[in-house]
Amino acid sequence: MEHHFLDQYSDRDSLIHRLDPRVKAITFFSLVLFVILTPAASFSAFGFYGALLIILIAFSKVPPIFVVRRSLVIIPFVVIVGLFMPFIKGGRSLGNYSLGAVDFSVTYEGVMLFWNIFIKAMLSCISLTVLTSTTRFVDLLKGFETMHLPKLLIMILSFMYRYIYVFIGELMSMRIAKESRSAGGGKRFHLKAIANMVGVFFIRAYERGERVYLAMCSRGFDGTVRTLNRLKLNARDIYFSFSVIALLITIRCFAK
């Protein structure tokens, strides 16, 4: 079965795909860092960051529409945090509105604060989307591992990635089995069946864990998961990260 829920497009081939995952991670995280540390009023700087991202997306051959759609998931959070800012933040007034008995005044500081949250969230989210859709999740984990992120965390993430589809598959087949047997029946009956299914699912997951542990022990597991580092940096990786970071510094220093 082909599943690409977490890292869709990551198994394609492009200049960006072929880069070392560590280099990619560092580069895109730097991009996020630069975006966050740029003052909200540097409108042109954000324009240049955006342009840089567009170029990277073009090289990556990932459909831009996909990147944009993925990044939009952040919008609800931005709206919740930022939408009321123009109204409640004090400062220079840009206009007063009244809606029945309630009076609003929009302030310049408030609008800037909203813009600040909005543009930074969007650009950061796009950067990370480009990273995850050009790097297989397993390679990203490998990269993090050689960069000495906590081993336990990597292990949990890698098990999660390995088994999430197995679990989804089990859940699907349980649902199909339930639906093909339950013609009619009241709401109460269905709720009971679903509760039952959830219970069975947890027991199965638990048993899976037990069997996987046995399989690990059978191959000499002694408490540490060992892997070989097969990543190698080459000249192209270094050129890439240096040029992107140099561009970021230029934008940050010169664009106003």
Partner: peptide
């Protein structure tokens, strides 16, 4: 021992890691 369900046997992210697991241990 090769267990019945390959999803139990193969617990690492890639084939390489799985096949390397025993020798590394």
């Amino acid at each position: 021992i090769v267990f019945q369900d390959p999803d139990d046997q193969l617990f690492m992210p890639t084939s390489f890691d799985d096949v390397a697991f025993g020798p590394l241990s």
